[in-house]
Design a protein around this nucleic acid. Sequence first.
DNA 1: GTAGGGTTAG
Length: 733
Amino acid sequence: METLSTPLLYLPRYSTSLTVNNDHEHPVFLHLKRCTNSSQLKQIHAQMLRTGLLFDPYSASKLFAASALSPFSSLDYARKVFDEIPKPNLYTWNTLIRVYASSREPLQGVLIFLRMLHESPYYPNKFTFPFVIKAATETFSLCVGQALHGMVIKASLEADVFISNSLIHFYMSCGDLDSAYRVFMMVGEKDVVSWNSMITGLAQRGCAEKALQMFQNMEEQNVKPNDVTMVGVLSACTTKLDLEFGRWVHSYIERNGISVNLTLNNAILDMYTKCRSLEDAKSLFDMMEEKDIVTWTTMLDGYAKLGAYEEARQILDTMPRQDIAAWNALISGYEQNGMSKEALSIYHELQQSKIAKPDEITLVSTLSACAQLGALEVGDCIHAYIKELGIKLNCHLTTSLIDMYSKCGDIKKALEVFYSVEKRDVFVWSAMIAGLAMHGQGKAAIDLFSRMQETMIRPNSVTFTNVLCACSHAGLVKEGKTFFGMMEPVYGIAPELQHYSCMVDMLGRAGLLEEAVEFIEKMPMPPSDSVWGALLGACQIHGNVELAEQACSRLLELDPGNDGAYVLLSNVYAKSGKWEGVSRLRKHMRVTRLKKEQGCSRIEVNGVIHEFLAGDNCHPLSKEIYSKLDEIVVGLKSAGYVPNKSQLLQLIEEDDMQEHALNLHSEKLAIAFGLLYVEASQPIRIIKNLRVCGDCHSVAKLISKLYNREIILRDRYRFHHFSRGHCSCKDYW
DNA sequence: GTAGGGTTAG
């Protein structure tokens, strides 16, 4: 520790008077200019205090600027210096606002500004406003910015292009595009930054077309674009996923001699990966002489999202520093491509290696993977980890937790999370409504939707999909029709295909097949495969062969490879004893080599996921499982169970064999495994990739009674809670 | 003596 008795610098002891007489060449300023570390700065500070130079506002401002802006100084130290200055001048106030505006506490910038208005004799000048507007931008404080805008006008400073540009950026960041545009229009001499602020603002708000239109206007006005302009334009291309236009922009940059720096190269690279051209991305990546963490992460993300996992992994292993963004890119790449097991394994690797610390984004992706897999125990661990680290739940995390708990079958925990948070955005509300819907709690879902209306949060298109889905699963036809009718007139949300599908599903399930058909006929757009699929599903429930045939052929016109359509139609035939229809379908599937998606059920025991396929004997405990299954069948038969073969795609002709095939359904294997290895106090949680068949549904009900166990089964569309011989779906599914 | 706009992971 250096002390003042061993100075690093020799500071001549001037006999200073308090006034400096405009002697700006005071030697202490020279030292200040040459100062390279904080110890030297402190010595100068001490010297100025001793000599009283600090009482001169101009000299003090010099010291303060050095304390606030030099790379080796800290904001805390600068603040201490500021507090010692008896009469800070306007320059000093401006500098303090400036450093706070770009610090981690931008709000302080606004507060200091207010203090300046009260305590100082100065009125803000053309330099003050850009700093304080930046502070308002960083805090997303619309009313503060609006007030500042008012002050700018009163001070007759609205013609200042720097201030106007700050205001444009501010309004864009707050999402007030109209105000940004108004300020933009008022700027007399728009410079390149004015245009850039509009272009990047629009691009970041997802208004790609408007951003590109702005770019065109800019060219027409003969304002020469620079590298920042092109980053904004590329961002718009990336939103549009328009590779051809992206390539044109790349060549435009080269043709117009726009200087390409690292950031611009990164933006071009991102455009190529998002527009799915790995070739273009790779060749740019290889050519780039300078790369930073963004370059590496962008390339890694491109590989991972497009399924080139080996290449992605190689980037991770060779990049100079594996920060958390890189791990997140790999995890989300797997998760978004439905490879949840791989996503979880990367997450585990990350935790064990401790190379980087998981952040909110890591947790959101990993929770989604848990939700897909139904990995409740892993999901629970992540929730515990969040609590342990004291991570505050933001809306993204809250949504992911609610989604994970709902999809893993623990609706109570999902509700706990929902009620534990103070802040809920439209995604949080929608996720909770979806959770209740998939658990068949339609009434609760609707109640929640009503409570949502009491808040300022406006429902979006997804919210309505979830509400209609809730009505459909719970048979709430009247309510569903009301909500559907309100969408456009009350909420200004035009119904989309998924809303029509939900309505057809709802009407169809309720047996209103004619009404469902009329509804389809009145659709303002061509019905999609999922609309016909909903109708076909309803036909299966209500055994309407003729309509099923029509729905199936319309569905196959749109999606010829839809194996589910054949299965559903086959079930309709089987249900009404039309075996010739069944074998015709079977033959057709054989000829076209279309295979029914294999049924697969999953169960998690002690954090390990066990997977079963129909008739599968790959499991190491296969023998025990099958003997348990035999025991169950004997027990069920003596309780009066008769196998229900109506929903079996008739691949096996003989009766005995049919029954055998039924017994081998994957969910039955998983239930047998659960009875053997899940603690008696715990529910048996199973996840199936397809819809549960009627026979398995009755069997699960009986088992829940005979063995006095709770079984929670997630199928492709919803949950079934079996308990004491009943199912939560009330056999309406 | 002070100023404004940009790229990656949800």
